[in-house]
């Protein structure tokens, strides 16, 4: 817990320095005699406060006795990391193979392999969810989801709904 607390505090400090470096591209001081602060002032000075506060958290962690107990429960880290990985893979696949392949694949993995559910529960959700999404977003709201290489498959459907 103590180590994780420090790592997060350092990460936030790094983030605020990164923000400050970018903020100085615009004026951070007073604009002339009456213009008020410049465009970079708000992000710059707030990042500085964030840097100081995160630094305070880091400094405090060296003075105090740490919380007992680990940050990650060793048994739980595998499911959390595998769900995050599946999420990232799914998002990366969407522009390539299209939402209507990537999302059913994600559901199939989550329910069948990760959740160990039977086909009776998995199949209706894997098939039903994309159908619902198509009718809700594309047919009703006219919001087209990325289809990637599967785009040609949808031409007959477009002809029906648009």
């Amino acid at each position: 817990m103590l180590v994780a607390d420090r790592v997060i505090a350092v990460a936030l400090m790094a983030l605020s320095i990164y923000f400050m470096v970018h903020a100085v591209e615009l004026p951070i001081g007073w604009e002339g005699s009456s213009g008020g602060p410049g465009g970079g002032a708000f992000p710059f000075w707030l990042s500085l406060i964030m840097l100081l506060a995160a630094g305070g958290i880091l400094a405090r962690s060296f003075l105090q006795e740490g919380h007992s107990g680990p940050f990650f429960d060793r048994v739980m880290i595998i499911p959390v990391v595998s769900v995050i990985t599946a999420l990232v893979v799914t998002i990366a696949l969407i522009p390539i193979v299209g939402a209507y392949v990537a999302i059913p694949l994600f559901l199939l993995w989550y329910l069948k392999i990760y959740g160990r559910h039977g086909w009776l529960l998995t199949a209706p959700i894997v098939i039903g969810t994309p159908v619902f999404i198509f009718f809700f977003f594309e047919a009703t709201l006219k919001i087209l989801l990325p289809k990637g290489v599967t785009e040609p498959w949808f031409f007959p459907l477009y002809a029906m709904f648009f």
Partner: peptide
């Protein structure tokens, strides 16, 4: 309802709802 079903559907709604 098994918790995995709820989580899976929420994740998909987040992806699609975030894109829309």
């Amino acid at each position: 309802m098994p918790f995995t079903v709820l989580c899976a559907i929420v994740m998909v709604l987040c992806i699609v709802g975030g894109f829309a």
